[in-house]
Amino acid sequence: MTLEISREHRNDFTIITIVGEVDKTEEAMLSAQIDEALTAARPRLLFDLSSMDFIDSSGLRLLVQASSRAHRCGGSCALCCLNPVPRRIMRLTGLDAAFDLYPTLGAALAKGRPESAASVEL
């Protein structure tokens, strides 16, 4: 098992915590958790990526779709605690501009100022 995903509600957010590596093998697990989280009326998704060591294009695609779907339902989608490796691939692909990025979970839950605000609409 290279991936563990948990989901919890705190404040107004559904926090999806990803632990491990997201690749083609594991994308179904992440997709199922996102689908569950998006059943809320105005889903406010917050991905805690502090323990995510790796993500490839299949995982990035799911994050982009999650954000797009959340916004279409009047909700939101943000990421927090990016490690250097996921941060690098997001920067290289330009996807870092598509999400509100928070340095810590606490900052995201407090709805404070993101370290980087989404500047591209998905």
């Binding site: 690749d23 790796f54 490839d56 294009s57 250097p84 690098r88 691939i89």
Partner: peptide, 18 residues
């Protein structure tokens, strides 16, 4: 950084072929 680039690149190439 270069090692990580290669790790992801090989993963992507293989995932496409699979």
């Amino acid at each position: 950084d270069e090692i990580e680039d290669l790790r992801i690149a090989v993963d992507e190439a293989c995932a496409m072929l699979l």
